[in-house]
């Protein structure tokens, strides 16, 4: 899986400065990657550009042939006229029914299949939404704050399990939780803050790629977190 942005420029119509200005960036999968940046730096815009929801003003996004890209965010809802279970079954291929079951078991959501989506807590909604995307056809899943309302231990468990279950897929995980992206990503792409003329470069920081059952050294995590935050604040990169 390969994606590269060449001289990508984008600005929202009617708004001030561009978000990206002749940006060159590439992503090589498979693997679990983080996308980090302070609020308003363009993480979601980049995700929407890659997924094809937005079209760049200039430049191009080159992708390997026939790759399926999905983009999901935390505000998504299931239709309210059916139960969670009915919806999940209707959007899951028969061949992936066992995967769906496994995910729901991992996410501790088996007992909520007869509920309506509106009756779930925010964290439960996040987990159900992620599960339905994971059973779709995809090569790259861009997950934008998809576990924002899930407690930390459960979130860590979900990320570890996701990496274990989908080693051949590529994930671009957008989060404001720097500790999380530092621990679980094999590399974090950091959008620097404070570019009034648009971001031109995204810096890549190799991270710890923590696997299920392993524990990263605290000193290493601290070091990566510091590096990421430094890059994100717009100071000189690593």
């Amino acid at each position: 899986m390969h994606i590269s942005c060449r001289h990508l420029s984008y600005s929202y119509p009617g708004t001030g400065p561009p978000v990206f200005n002749s940006l060159d960036w590439s992503l090589e999968g498979p693997g679990f990657f983080g996308l980090f940046g302070l609020s308003g730096t363009g993480k979601t815009t980049l995700a929407r550009l890659i997924s094809g929801e937005l079209s760049p003003n200039q430049g191009s996004i080159d992708k390997s042939r026939d790759i399926a890209i999905l983009y999901t965010h935390s505000a998504e809802r299931l239709p309210g006229w059916e139960t969670v279970g009915t919806h999940l079954r209707s959007v899951t291929k028969a061949s992936r029914a066992s995967l769906l079951e496994a995910l729901l078991r991992d996410y501790e959501m088996e007992d909520y299949l007869e509920c309506r989506f509106s009756g779930l807590s925010m964290g439960q909604k996040n987990r159900i939404n992620l599960a339905r995307y994971l059973v779709q056809d995809f090569d790259l899943l861009i997950a934008d704050e998809v576990l924002a309302n899930v407690d930390e231990p459960t979130r860590n468990q979900i990320l570890e399990r996701t990496k274990l279950l989908f080693p051949q897929k590529t994930f671009l995980y957008i989060s404001h939780n720097v500790l999380e992206v530092a621990r679980f990503s094999q590399a974090v792409y950091v959008l620097p803050h404070g570019h009034s003329t648009g971001i031109e470069n995204i810096c890549k920081i190799s991270c710890l790629d923590q696997q299920a059952g392993s524990e990263a050294h605290e000193e290493l995590i601290r070091e990566r977190v510091y590096t990421i935050l430094k890059a994100a604040s717009g100071s000189s990169g690593p």
């Binding site: 965010h73 998504e76 299931l78 239709p79 959007v91 339905r132």
Partner: peptide, 12 residues
């Protein structure tokens, strides 16, 4: 958008 996004992404 919050409901339609999934169906659009997955081509449904």
């Amino acid at each position: 958008e919050e409901v339609e996004h999934f169906y659009r992404m997955t081509g449904r």
